[in-house]
Amino acid sequence: MSPHVHSGDSVSKNMRWVIIAMLPAMLWSFYAFGMGAVIVTAVSVASCVFFEWAINKYILKNDKCTVCDLSAVVTGILLAFNLPSNLPLYIIIIGALFAIGVVKMTFGGLGCNLFNPALAARVFLLISFPVKMTVFPEVGQMTAYADAVTAATPMANLADTSLLDLFLGNVGGSLGEVSALCLLLGLVILLASRTITWHIPVSILVTVFALTGLLHIAYPVEVATPWHHLFGGGLMLGAIFMATDYVTSPMTPKGQLIYGFCIGFLTVAIRVFGAYPEGMSFAILIMNAFVPLINNACKPKRFAKEVKK
């Protein structure tokens, strides 16, 4: 049956591009947080891959090599990106088990999960280990791991943090979220390799920038500048690598814009008015749940037909 040729694109090719795009932020985390970052990343990736392999082999009794599609590696890196670099090993392993075992594989593996595995695991850990998940080692302790000197996230008093430090990543935080510059570099790689389209990241970033801009004008003391919000916390990481997850984002450009706008809106609402200083993870997870609805509501423009409701 036609077509008899194929583009040569594959799941693993796409995943490989995502991994390449994450490299700048990963290398920065190694530079900023030293040994701790390397250990957390290695353990997270290894346990994600191990759990996917083990569940396939011993529970699902499935011969297919789903580990080969590299999606578990991506989940592992993303999970590590969301963790502090001094996190005890057992917590990382629990996170990986939750991400792969509960969020991904119980729903049927790649493509079937409703929520982003790495993000759901982060929130699971945040609720289960609230203290360990919210203190972050300070930058520049090359050989430290469990004994690293820590401080709270700069998100707690965002307005006092140097904008340049936020942009470059000279601040405490989860492994992968600190350097906006490296993450933007990742975005360029993702767009240039046509792994993702611009709709989701741009709509999130623009929404957050616009809303915090308005709030900053209204409350210049209480609300940090829009630039601080743009470069601070997990916004860049979430907008570029988390919200753009194929599986848990809408299928049409129009749906993606709505999804991005809502994530931006919720993030600002939680950051400015909520109890948590950081709102990105919650915003994305909440919108993950709406994706099937968005897909139903936003059909692509059919040929020669106005979009039907």
Binding site: T66, S71, L110, T197, M251, P300, R302, F303, K305
Partner: peptide
């Protein structure tokens, strides 16, 4: 077409990348 060219790749789960939606010239899903 050679035997090698004729082979289809192994089918995997749909990862909902939406590339088929973007490629469809009739605006279908």
């Amino acid at each position: 077409m050679s035997e090698k060219e004729s082979l289809r790749g192994e089918e995997q789960n749909c990862m909902r990348c939406a590339k088929c939606v973007a490629a469809c010239p009739m605006g279908l899903e």
